[in-house]
Every structure is written in C-alpha cells, then in structure tokens.
Nucleic acid binder design. Sequence first.
DNA 1: GGTTGCCTTGACGCCAGCGGCAAGGTCTAG
DNA 2: CTAGACCTTGCCGCTGGCGTCAAGGCAACC
Lengths: 130, 130
Amino acid sequence: MLIGELAERAGTTTRALRYYETHGLVRAARSANGYRVYDEAELPVVREIRALLAVGFGLDDIRPFVACLRAGNATGHVCPDSVAVLRRKLAEVDAGIDRLHEVRRELRDQLAHAITHREETCSRLRRAAR
Amino acid sequence: MLIGELAERAGTTTRALRYYETHGLVRAARSANGYRVYDEAELPVVREIRALLAVGFGLDDIRPFVACLRAGNATGHVCPDSVAVLRRKLAEVDAGIDRLHEVRRELRDQLAHAITHREETCSRLRRAAR
DNA sequence: GGTTGCCTTGACGCCAGCGGCAAGGTCTAG
DNA sequence: CTAGACCTTGCCGCTGGCGTCAAGGCAACC
C-alpha cells in the first residue's frame, strides 16, 4: 500500500502520514524506487492516532497507544502505559472543566452586572425625560 | 509614567505593553527623547486587558472593552459591544464544557474497558497457573 | 568618564500539527 | 513521446501572546 492509499483509507493526508513517521508513530518500508510501502497493519495504527488526536491528545501522548497496538492488542488503550496516559488526561479534562466553569461564572457575573448597569442608566434616562 | 513603571504596576512586562500598543489597545505619548509616556488612565486599561486575557479572551475580543473604558465607563463590560462579546464567549465556553464532557465520557469508557480487559487477562493467567 | 539602569526598534524563537509550494523522480496509459 | 497521476525531500507559513536577545541611545550618579 502506498502513502496516498493509506491516507485516503485512514481519512487523512499524505502530509500528516509523513509527519507521524518523522515523529516515530507510523512505520513504512521502502520499495526500490524509494516510495513508502505500508503494511496493512498500519491502517488501524493511523486510525488510532486520528481518533486520539480528535479527542485532544498530543502526539507524545499517543505513542504508548501505538506501541500497545503493535504489541498485538486489538485496541491501543489496554496497556499500562496507555492507561496511565488515560488517567492523566482524564484528570486534565476534569481540571479543564472546572476552569471553564469558573470562567463561565465570571462571564455570567459580568453580563449580569452589565445588564443591571444598563437598566440603571435607562431609569436615569426615563427620570430625566419627565 | 514610563513603560517600566506601568508594567510593574499592572503586573506585566514592558514587552507585553509594546505588543498591546502595536495592536491598538494601549496608547502612549512620547517624551522628547522618544520614551513612551503613559497617562494614569492607561493603568486600568492594562489591568482590564490582563484580566480578560486570563479568562481566555483574545486581543481582538478585548478591544471593545478597552473602548468602553476609554468612553468613561468605570468598567469595560457595560457597553453593547462588550456585552455582545461576553455573550459570544459565554456560548463558546458552554460549547467547550460540552465538548470536554464528551471527551471525559470517552476517556472513562476507554479506561473502564482497559480495566475489564486486564481483569480478564488476569483470570486467564490464574486459570493457566493451576 | 565610567558604570548602572532606564529606554528604543527589530527580529527571531516557541508550541503543534500540519498545509502548501518547489523541484524533481517514477510509472502508466494513450 | 507525452501527459498526468503518483511519489520524494525540504523548507516556509500559520495562529497568539509574548520571551529573548542584539545593538544602540539617554540619564544620572560617583
């Protein structure tokens, strides 16, 4: 399988595949003319990468998942290293949710204050109009 | 007031102040020797910028707040443009929270699956040990 | 006059995951 | 023979809010 086919089947681009390779996530043999030749087993690897990226993982976080897949597991998240990353990410997501809730409270307060202020201004204007 | 003093009083750096100026957020007169000279009124402006940046606003979003302050308001969030930005940001934050909750569910599912798988593996190992 | 400490502009670096372009080699069909 | 559809490496661009020099001018004090 050449790079274009793999890209299409995995729903990504040749550029991204080469990028993953330079970062040690995807492997390719080379044919006589220098073209990258991919094993069928790289397809699930690339799909795993894409899925984790979509969830918000960085390439470094994804590495253990790829290793887990290559070790013969049906999914990449059953190995200890992957589980450790999952736990860490879960904590990060929880922290992010908390932070966003704080920001949300802040925004609501400012909005409420702005509206109150506007009503005061309006009532002042109404009083002035009489 | 020179740039170093403003930076210190506003809790930021001279680099940041010059950056805000190039992006039209902070104003400075120039003394004879070319030094930036800041009016006292720039201090609350810079503090507003810093506060909004900390909440996650971009400089473009902050511009209406600065304009609101310059228009003589005690706070930057009482003007219509600011309120519009606040509403938009609130919606963005809500969307972000929803997204993080989805990601969180995904992560919990994968973790649960990983642990289930490990227990199965362990029981297989125990059976094999007998 | 030398040192210290402020100020100036300009320009590159950073993080991350690629997109896009250049300049070229390869393979296949007509 | 040629067109077009693949492939290769390499390098710059992008987003944002600055940090970090570099190279120099100005002010004040000893």
